[in-house]
Each structure stands twice: as structure tokens, then as C-alpha cells.
Amino acid sequence: MDELRELYQEVIMDHNRNPRNFGEMEHADHAVEGRNPLCGDHYTIYLKMNGDRIEKVSFNGAGCAISKSSASIMSTILKGKTKAEAEKLFDVFHKIVTGELDAAAHMEELGKLAVFAGVAEFPVRVKCATLPWHAMHSALAGSENTVSTEEEN
């Protein structure tokens, strides 16, 4: 149960129950849906850009506490970041949740994202945590296609 408490930290529970920047964005520059067909979790990430900088982020959709809080926290963190900074954050985040990097050594760049370090103990939940990030990554790349956690034909 301790590992589970580590996973479902206060911050994660809070963002799950009161997600920030939740809702559709009108006149978004990019909107990409991320789907996990295995569990049905789905989020659309909306980005409003100002040149190379992310001016506004919002998201819509439904899923488990891990995916929803991940989308919520991501939305608060990406505001004001450049594309390169956003991609760098995704890279670090991905390595933290897969256990490739030790969260403690990257506290500064991770900030609030450090609460997801507990995911590394549960490989089945990695897709939950990274789903909104994959959609964001795809949106930044200018794609309009739905992204999926699974290979689809």
C-alpha cells in the first residue's frame, strides 16, 4: 500500500479532482487527441502559440487519476515554454516515469512533475502518465491526427 500512496500523491489526487485548464479551447492553433484504445482513456490537448512559445494550454477528455492529473499538471507547466523546452521536459518526464532517470537528481527541472516518480514502480501505468504528453508532442509537431498508445493499422 505504501507504493500505492507514493503513486497517488496528494498533488495527483488534487489535480484529478480539480483539473486545471480543463475544457475545450476556442481558436486553438493545435488540437490533438491522445487515445489509449486498451482502456478507453482519451484527452484532447489544445495549444495556443505565440511564435515559438506556448501561450496557452488546455485539455478535455476522460481517464484515470494518473492520466488526468498528468494532463492537468502538464498544462500548468507548459504555459510560456518554448517548443524546445517543452520537448525537453517530455523527454525528462518520460525517463522519470519509466525509471530510466532518478527523479531526485532532476528535481529542479522537473518541478511539480516530480510527483510522478512513483509511476516507475508500476510499468502498466506508464502509458497513463505519458498519454497527454504524447498528444502534446504531436500537437507541437503540427499534426492533427489522433495519437494512440498502441500501434494501429
Binding site: L4, Y8, C39, G40, C64, A65, V124, C128
Partner: peptide, 26 residues
């Protein structure tokens, strides 16, 4: 409004195997 995935993960930690999802019946 506890999501089934969070529920089944918690139950799993208690040794209980249940299924969460759409059960191939979307």
C-alpha cells in the same frame, strides 16, 4: 467517480484480480 483503472490498481495491491475497462463491449 473513482476511475476503474485506479480502482483495479488499488485492488491489485490487495491481491485481488478484477478487470477494468470496456470489456470488449464498447
Amino acid at each position: 467517480d473513482i476511475h476503474p483503472h485506479d480502482m483495479s490498481h488499488l485492488l491489485d495491491q490487495s491481491g485481488i484480480a478484477v478487470r477494468a475497462g470496456h470489456h470488449c463491449a464498447q
